[in-house]
Design a protein around this nucleic acid. Structure first.
Length: 436
RNA sequence: GGAGGGGUAGCCAAGUGGUCAACGGCAGCAGACUGUAAAUCUGCCCUCUACGGAGUUCGAAGGUUCGAAUCCUUCCCCCUCCA
């Protein structure tokens, strides 16, 4: 499962030689052309199977938070593509496996979540998928089962006897998720060691229950996916496929999905649509084409055209990327509002309605309050000290004029014609203050 | 159970009685340059501050000392090897 959502770095050493025969099934054609495919088990057989008719595939997500961030977006877009090309996607909630914690990509054991927390997280994650997939009972409608349904009731001894014997510890020790921990001398508990066993079992269970033929996920999940496919073959003599997406990082090698405030979340209670738009707007030049293919649904020839833009021109492509990506996640209206706000803020130096706004009681404003405090309240600084340093460094501005004095007080006199005060931290982060 | 090694700020990591709020690197923030990009350079990067300082930090709790991240005691946790 791609339960792990850590930021990742591209690995140029793995070059996919998919040059052999062109895929024919709509899903594989699109997935390969758009850069979703990193590795695939028996790709030609999969292609043939997809040509026969709709198929079922799944990706698993851990419920470790009540939202997901861009680290999971490739997987989400892949499921969406799967559905759009006439197949049935399963979003497997790891309600059961979350009680274990995926060791992949982590040095430390994840803290165990309570059952209540897991339930809350599931609801939050469902909200995201509702935007990207069509759920229902139809042949290609998405469903969202929870592996707690079958994992919770497992009996230890019967499970070991029936399934445990198909797993070789020797082999498990060679998997990256395990190997890394061991090499770095980081603890790996038996509990976590079992994660891949359960994930493999999930695959088998979904194959039996929903005739699921493929599991997809991030490339760090390859080992887990393959071992699930193998389990299906050994026990049920089923042909199961696996497909992984490449690790998505920025061209300059940085991990993706971090901004000033932390992770780039997909829900607007954690990250506003405007900030989400900004995240995409600030994509590196070299990433524009790749991101357009992965994170928007524009036709490939149009992307090719946008990608060819050079120098300042490429900013147009970045705007398209930002608006399209935001539209998928937050709706077209919010995306366009974000774009309009950005245009006004950056091109005209004006304000825009999508900027974060704080209101301050009029009486307090009449009295005047320290600029430092206002920056903290507006969320532009996390402590007084940080606000102070911002001013010292020359990065704090009040209505577009640099604040030079740390002791500067802000009051009603600073309200502009519209009754608003605009605060800025650096060139990009802005907030509005209104009297209430 | 035995022997050895280790737990330092978001991460990695130096420090092993005072000059330590703690070298260095990464990540992050701001400034310059630009194109709201990257790269580069500069500053910041525990909290508070009337900028003179003050307060809390180095797994936890005690203790020694004028003074401890550094020494002692107990406890917790991790790693390696042995049984």
């Amino acid at each position: 499962m791609c339960y792990s959502t850590r930021p990742v770095v591209p690995n140029p050493s793995i070059d996919l030689a998919f040059a052999m025969t062109a895929a024919r099934s709509p899903f594989l054609v699109a997935a390969e052309a758009r850069g979703f495919v990193h590795q695939c088990t028996d790709r030609d057989a999969l292609d043939a199977r997809l040509l026969e008719g709709p198929a079922v595939a799944y990706i698993g997500f851990d419920c470790t938070a009540d939202s997901l961030h861009v680290g999971s977006l490739v997987q989400i877009m892949l499921l969406r593509l799967w559905q759009r090309t006439g197949n049935k996607p399963i979003v497997l909630m790891g309600g059961g496996t979350t009680k274990i914690g995926d060791p992949s990509g982590k040095d430390e054991t994840r803290k165990l979540l309570t059952v209540d927390e897991i339930e809350r997280n599931k609801t939050g994650i469902r909200r995201i998928f509702d935007r990207f997939l069509a759920f229902g009972e139809g042949a290609t409608d998405a469903t969202m089962p929870d592996n707690a349904d079958w994992l919770d009731g497992l009996q230890y001894i019967p499970f070991l006897r029936e399934y445990g014997r198909h797993f070789s510890v020797n082999r498990m020790l060679t998997f990256d998720s395990v190997k890394l921990r061991l090499e770095r001398e980081q603890p790996l508990s038996f509990l976590e060691f079992n994660y891949m066993v359960l994930q493999s079992y999930d695959f088998l269970e979904l194959a039996r229950r929903h005739n699921c033929i493929m599991q997809m996920g991030g490339s760090d999940q390859w080992g887990n996916i393959v071992s699930g496919a193998e389990l299906g073959r050994r026990i049920d003599n089923r042909t199961l496929f696996g497909l992984t997406t490449p690790l998505i990082g920025t061209a300059s090698g940085a991990k993706m999905g971090k901004t000033a405030q932390g992770a780039v979340w997909l829900t607007d209670d954690r990250l506003s649509a405007y900030d989400y738009w900004q995240f995409w707007r600030n994509t590196e030049d070299e990433d524009v084409g790749r991101f357009l293919r992965l994170f928007t649904e524009l036709p490939l020839d149009e992307i090719a055209r946008l990608e060819r833009l050079k120098d300042a021109e490429i900013n147009h492509a970045k705007q398209v990327l930002a608006t399209e990506a935001t539209a998928l996640c937050h709706g077209r209206a919010a995306a366009e509002a974000a774009q309009e706000t950005a245009r006004r803020v950056f091109s005209e130096g004006a304000t825009g309605s999508a900027l974060p706004t704080v209101s301050v009681p009029r009486s307090e404003l009449e009295r005047g309050l320290p600029a430092i405090e206002l920056f903290v309240r507006a969320g532009l600084a996390s402590s007084n000290g940080e606000a102070r340093r911002l001013i010292r460094g020359g990065g704090a501005r009040l209505n577009d004029a640099a604040i030079t004095e740390e002791t500067r007080s802000i009051g009603a006199a600073d309200l502009n014609a519209d009754g608003i005060i605009k605060l800025s931290a650096g060139r990009k982060r802005h907030a509005l203050v209104k009297a209430s």
